[in-house]
Write a protein that binds this DNA or RNA. Sequence first.
DNA 1: GTTGCCAAGTTTTTT
DNA 2: ACTTGGCAAC
Length: 854
Amino acid sequence: MEATPENLENPQGSRSWIAARAGADDALVRDLTGPQREAVLCTQGPLLVLAAAGSGKTRVITRRIAHLLATGVKPWQILALTFTNKAAGEMRERIGKLLEETAGGGGAVRGLTVTTFHSLCARLLRKYAEAAGLKPDFTIYDSDDQSKLCKKVIEQLQLSTANFPPRSVLSAVSRAKNELMDAESFAARATDFSSKNIARVYKAYSAALRAANAVDFDDLLLLTARTLERNAQVRGECQARWRYLLVDEYQDTNRAQFLIAAMIAGDGERASGGELPASSLPGVEDEEEGEGTGGTPVPRDGIGKKVGPNICVVGDPDQAIYGWRGADISNILDFERSYPGCRVITLGENFRSTAPILEAADTLIRHNKRRKHKDLFTSRKGGEKPEAILTSNEKAEARVVADWLKARHEAGAAWRDMAIFYRTNSLSRVMEESLRAFNVPYSIARGTAFYDREEVRSALAYLRIVANPADGVSLSRIINVPARGISKATQDVLEAFAERDEMPLMEACRGAGGVAELNARAQAAVAKFVAMVDAWTGGGTFMGSDISGSLADLVDRIIRESGLRAMYVAQANTSKSETDAERVDNLDELVSSARQFEQEYDAAADAANDPLAADGLVETPPLLAMLRAYLESIALVADADSVDPTQGSVTLMTLHAAKGLEFDSVAMIGMEEGLLPHSRAISMPVAGDAELEEERRLCFVGITRAMRRLLMTSAKYRTIRGVPERTIPSRFLGEIPERGLIVSDQSETFAEDYDAPAGGWGVDTGRYSPPRGGGFSAVSPSSGASSGSGSSSGASRGPAGEFPVGSKVRHPQFGLGIVESISGGPSPRAVIKFKDVGSKTMVLEYARLVRVQG
DNA sequence: GTTGCCAAGTTTTTT
DNA sequence: ACTTGGCAAC
């Protein structure tokens, strides 16, 4: 049966629908293919859209939402969940444009909820804080905060942080949370010494989070899922409000996200004691159901017209790359089982890439065994084959890529249409240096970088205790930054006090005057600190003559009155180091970011984005509400959010961040065993090579981002953590047939000598002297197709021999200096006397020294 | 109480 | 290499 709107009940009444059908709607589907059109028009009941890479997925989603609105569905009845904020923003924008073009009036976007799972959950948890066991002013802890708290908890439990490193304990806890396992059920499962203790930490860590009125990333999902599950009223309100649910990148949802979506979607009728869908994949264990997780909605089948809730999920199992984060690919593979009456539409036609690129992607992904095959096809003809280049080392690789990009640019491609992908962030560094040397404008997709800086983190810590005084981790970070006479000893006393009376650290600070263990000076220092914070918050009211009501003003005031700014100004004056001057700038930049947020917030953001604005948070002072929203927006930024295609620069990013994007020309660097596939995925043999297959999908994602040109590079030697290592080209290159790839071995080209062009950067110390032969044989026997002239500037130069005593050198950071002495051994060191900063000992191999003539 | 030096861990991917 | 945290000296 065709589940078109014609034969399904239209809850909004047919009048507006008919009107829309006649006019605007035609424009929405006119230029779509059959399956695309179907995905847009099939609005009622569960729908699974298997959208291959480049199949026009975003277009379909936006049209679908516009179509829903055109048929009379109210914007606030629609909930669209995306993977990143950026994707959400773009989608909202595109829908707005569509509506202006077709329906006339972009105002309809207002009230539409397009957001990420994490943002939605943060909002829901604030609104339903009480039901979730939280207070609405909770702080969202990032991984750094988590580590600090976890470490503290481990110490309190008298466990050694050597046996229980906070980070690995946290990853176990995270895994548990992703499977909706709370501390109790985790403990129930723990059998051995180690996991029993991890269970103890989990429990204490959760308690500590609650005491700090904080949640971590996983809690956002876990607590929301649990609240929806256990609280019929909350669930009912959400179901009543959102009648049309759309989930993008469904292949990367985890168990908690699956449940959240399923519970919000509801089904009109709830089954009790329902079971989660079991995996149909071989090799995947059925998850044992935890206690008390009954009530999962089970859509009913075939009764009446309605076959289930209006939930549309869009995704591509071949692009599932977040398994390590708890994403469960069976969510999408088993969607048909979860929603028996659902409709499945496959979008297989690729509109993005040329045939040779698509073919490379297709042959690669066919190597995955646990896979539902989907035919990828394009009607486009022609196009260049992807290239694979083997270089001598990572510097030569970076140079080759820069050359390639320049050539593309000269051929007419804009910088912004090019991108460089890599498996690990550490690979960006060498690439950056090369791009700088070649004057190629670039930007790195690292949304969190700014907020990760020490000075910014400190400023934010101040803001966080203003918003949430119980936030102990933030308080500890700044209580004595800048130094204000509250020593570690004093802090320990206060900490112990807080612990004993089970109150937040800030409360203990308030009572410091009566603590006998503290001397008068310490008491006074603490009292002064408390008074300072109180002045900022207006004693918690966020009102009064002293409070301007402006967020930017508050941020500015805090970085000044706390002494933070002055501290960095002083540091910048004494050290003259460039990074210290930057720190002051960064603090000022933070004020600007607050100002910008404030303006956008004032404009419309809250009304448009807050899913529950209508009956929102009453009695919250406006400044506090704004501060919360600001901190939340910062906590939930993703790397991919900072990708700005309007910038005229090449974008560098990880393969993970590249998901969902497209570029005319793409270079994938580090195509080596151990990097892609990553060693962690190879070394641990997992049933069915699950991790290896995920790496292959990651490679597939990278390839399918390219529209017209693709370059994949591999370096014969790569310096990893300071040690040059021989590499093996990625097996994935070998999996793409030779005829589909232009392979060239340029590993001899710059093997002996690598020099950046004039004004250039580091020199190669000659530590790479690759063995002759070897070639690119893992990929292709056709080696030696080197281009360019390998300008071997002579003899082999040992690192030590290059810098004789007395020679002048330049260090990128310390400037000019003279080599005073050299020590031999396996890692020769030199004492360099610098003009500006005095003598330093450095390992020649690592110090980026350049010999200077004269 | 504060500052500076040394040791250790670090590098997979991220909301 | 690079940052972070712990400890010892001022």
